[in-house]
Design a protein around this nucleic acid. Structure first.
Lengths: 167, 167
DNA sequence: CACAATTCAATTGCGTGCAACTGAATGACG
DNA sequence: CGTCATTCAGTTGCACGCAATTGAATTGTG
């Protein structure tokens, strides 16, 4: 028999670990399928955004993907070295860097069109199941991000006295 | 208007990206809460397994967590440097390394008992919702692992002639 | 018993992911 | 107009996560 604390420890392990494992499993399947395109999974996500929006500054790319420049800068350098994107400092704002697809990058989209079908068949899930799961995960992400934002200023997220930290 | 291929590309981005984002969001919340314990999120998962099973060889630890020695070896070295675990080569099988909690490692469990509650409150999800979500994610992981195993031997997962690869 | 195949942990190399910092460019404010 | 704060990309440092390899120990087989 377990104490209530033990039960919580167990349940906790299940949730966070299940998510962790599912994410890595997805990553593994993508790895195998994307190998033929010469892309990693995060690189594929970047290409998806670029295929959809065309040309974007690094900042906007980061907002779409929830990634910062610390992750994107080296990743984009690799995509540029692979000849898929170009990076050019914006003329209007010299701080900003525009990321733009090359012809090669645009052409890769044709070969990438088969990827989603192969992934979907790997999951064995139907479109409706996937939609539901996605919605739940997005709720979860929103809630977690909000909690992290609250917890960041100081230690305890229970006491929400997290304002007035300006000098 | 979009072609069916475009729709698939969109849907695909939603699923994989939602999972990716949720996993990182979880990671962020754990990072904040575990900072006080001096643990990272994967290190916390290792400690959870050890608190539950006591003493384990690296191999078994890897099976519980779906991680290999390439990830666990340096992680366990850090836990050892932090004084939470000891690693000793097994007497019966010199290849195996037993990972065992130190007194300090056992004591840390007391402080970790509050973690699950804080995480659960961060999600805003009820126990039942969490259970359902976990079950879906585990189904997903199982399906994806099976697909990856099929795809690994050669290129196409559609033709399942992936036997007889022995010389 | 000898020899080959297997198992196990560790190491190396690469690509994220994130915190912290740097440095340049821009904007705000007196 | 000049200073100060903010914004943006890049870099550094650290910790996974995984493929591939190494090397030692064990097991299986003849």
């Amino acid at each position: 028999m377990n104490t209530p604390d033990d039960d919580w420890l167990r349940l906790d392990q299940q949730i966070c670990f299940s998510l962790h494992a599912a994410s890595r499993a997805f990553n593994g399947v993508y790895r195998g399928i994307l190998k033929g395109l010469g892309l990693t999974y995060p690189q594929y996500l970047v290409m998806l955004v670029l295929w959809e929006h065309g040309e974007l500054p690094v900042k906007k790319l980061g907002e779409h993907l929830r990634l910062d420049s610390g992750t994107l800068s080296p990743l984009l350098k690799r995509l540029e070295a692979a000849g898929l994107v170009r990076r050019e400092r914006s003329a209007r704002d010299e701080r900003s860097v525009e990321v733009r697809l090359t012809e090669e990058g645009v052409a890769l989209r044709g070969r990438a069109l088969q990827v989603p079908r192969r992934i979907a068949s790997s999951t064995g899930f139907g479109a409706e199941e996937i939609r539901t799961l996605r919605a739940r995960l997005d709720e979860l992400t929103t809630a977690l991000d909000a909690a992290a934002a609250l917890a960041e200023p100081q230690g305890g997220p229970s006491t929400a006295a997290a304002a007035a930290e300006r000098p």
